[in-house]
Design a protein around this nucleic acid. Structure first.
Length: 463
RNA sequence: UCCAGCUUAGCUCAGUCGGUAGAGCAGGCGGCUGUUAACCGCCGGGUCGCUGGUUCGAGUCCAGCAGCUGGAGCCA
């Protein structure tokens, strides 16, 4: 017999049809008249399916009356109009097969749990309403990312996970090695002999696919990557993970204005997808996790983002009359408190900040004519802060080499990157977006560890 | 890494002025009901994070340690 998904049953309301549903019992309520209500969740949607199981079932006393929260069942029966108010349809069971009981020590109760506790049972937390909703929204976002780029002619490029370059110094890297750490081979000078390592050289997990992505943009035009990245930073915050997924488009013959345009369109596209496809899940999160979530998402897609240069932003902050712990002044980086003031108080919407001082930006960002700032951008959104960082890349070989020297990078370590400027260079631009931060924004969840199925943070690697 | 806070039953939490621990939920038993985070009654359930100190007496005050959470920095 075909297995029906709960979401489909609610959508189609096939009253009178005989169906089969598999899922997990959320709660059982026994009625006196020798029957029980079972609420079954199969993960297809937030709502549970109500099942009427009565004493005529051969295993009513032996099995059905013992079904506790967490048990897994297959229910076969007739779809009928419900007499109750909370649902339009329910199943009158003709057969209830128990795959597995969940004993009384099942850690999830029918009540709400704290997210910290749920984090300690990461294998069971997907069975809660909130994590089901977050997982479905994460899925919608991932699909919408591919949908956005495909519909605009971008090619999906798989950049390497294991890398031999240290990208841009974007962060501390996890080393990849097969050397025996107890018996490290040494060179005559006493250094570790990486020539004898698996790849014959020192390698790490990637911190960004951007540099490799640029090589394909300089051939295929518009490309994007969407894959895992790794940073060994000792960051203990609600916005950082050691393993996270990043989306990095790169566009040939594009300048920063176009880059900003695409970034804004992109954010609006994926948020619209969630607003359209996850209404029930959003309602749950809006009422139990973050009040006003839907409204703030609608606010993001409603109007144009604000645009401002770094220099203008500093002026706004200086004139704000606001007392900051760190006063804003030209030449120093924007603090979290500054970003929050701009998006949440001053503008009350997302803002794209551009043209930061070169001193605290990456070497590959295109130098402006003032020689003091670069053509970069940060997209800041209320609550989350920086969600996108990007730039027009430095396509002029001589300027790039000068910048590398300035920040102490050796050209021989970036030969492939320099070749792109040497042979048929072209203006190009791109940005990077932390996928989990996007999920945070769209779910209203407060901690990034709760929007990725298996979070990795300093001192924590379960499963 | 720095700063602050928290740690009491399986879970969520209360615990006053320092006087040897309480509720709800979950679990068991019974009742009631087309119920819907069902409801009512009864029962079982505790190394109060760990170590030490102050005190006649510490869940409560002090110190150290551990874990967790939040904020900051680094960033996506």
């Amino acid at each position: 017999m075909q297995i029906h998904r709960v979401q489909e049953l609610f959508k189609q309301s096939p009253v009178g049809q005989r169906v089969s549903v598999c899922g997990w019992v959320r709660t059982r309520r026994d009625a006196k008249n020798n029957f029980s209500f079972l609420e079954i969740n199969d993960g297809s949607c937030l709502k549970n399916l109500q099942v009427i199981a009565d004493g005529t079932l051969e295993n009513y006393e032996t099995d059905v009356k013992k079904l506790g929260t967490g048990s897994s069942v297959r229910v076969e029966g007739l779809v009928v109009a419900s007499q109750g108010k909370e649902q339009a349809i329910e199943i009158k069971a003709e057969r209830v097969h128990v795959y597995g009981f969940a004993p009384e020590d099942f850690p999830l109760q029918k009540k709400r749990h704290g997210f910290d506790y749920l984090r300690t049972i990461g294998h069971l937390r997907p069975r809660t309403n909130t994590f089901g909703a977050v997982t479905r929204i994460r899925h919608t976002l991932a699909m919408a990312v591919h949908d956005f780029f495909r519909s605009r002619g971008f090619f999906y490029v798989h950049t390497p996970i294991i890398t031999a370059n240290d990208a841009e110094g974007a962060g501390e890297m996890f080393q990849v090695t097969t050397l025996d750490l107890d018996k490290l081979p040494r060179t005559p000078e006493g250094k570790i002999d990486y020539a004898r390592d698996f790849f014959g050289r020192r390698t790490s997990l990637t911190v960004s696919g951007q540099l490799e992505g640029e090589t394909y943009a300089m051939a295929l035009g518009n490309i994007y990557t969407f894959g895992p990245t790794f940073r060994a930073e000792n960051s203990n915050t609600t916005r950082h993970l050691a393993e996270f997924w990043m989306i990095e488009p790169e566009m040939a013959f594009a300048d920063l204005d176009h880059n900003a345009f695409v970034a804004e369109e992109f954010l609006k596209h994926v948020i619209r997808a969630v607003l359209e496809q996850n209404q029930e899940d959003l309602n749950l999160l809006d009422s139990f996790v973050q009040k006003g979530l839907k409204e703030s998402l609608q606010n993001i897609v409603a109007g144009p983002f604000a645009r401002m240069t770094y220099t203008e932003a500093i002026e706004v902050l200086e004139k704000s009359g606001q007392k900051f712990e760190y006063p804003a002044k030209w030449g120093s980086s924007l603090q979290t408190e500054h970003e929050r003031y701009l998006t949440e108080v001053h503008l009350k919407k997302p803002v794209i900040l551009t043209d930061y001082p070169k001193d605290f930006t990456a070497f590959y960002m295109r130098l402006n004519d003032d020689k003091k700032t670069v053509r970069n951008m940060d997209v800041l959104v209320p609550q989350i802060g920086e969600i996108i960082g990007g730039s027009q890349r430095e396509e002029r070989l001589d300027v790039l080499l000068e910048r590398m020297q300035e920040v102490g990078l050796k050209p021989e370590d970036y030969e492939f990157y320099i070749d792109l400027r040497k042979y048929g260079t072209a203006p190009h631009a791109g940005f990077g977006l932390g996928f989990e931060r996007l999920v945070l924004l769209c779910t209203g969840m407060g901690n990034i560890r709760d929007v990725i199925p298996f979070p990795r943070t300093p001192g924590h690697c379960e499963f």
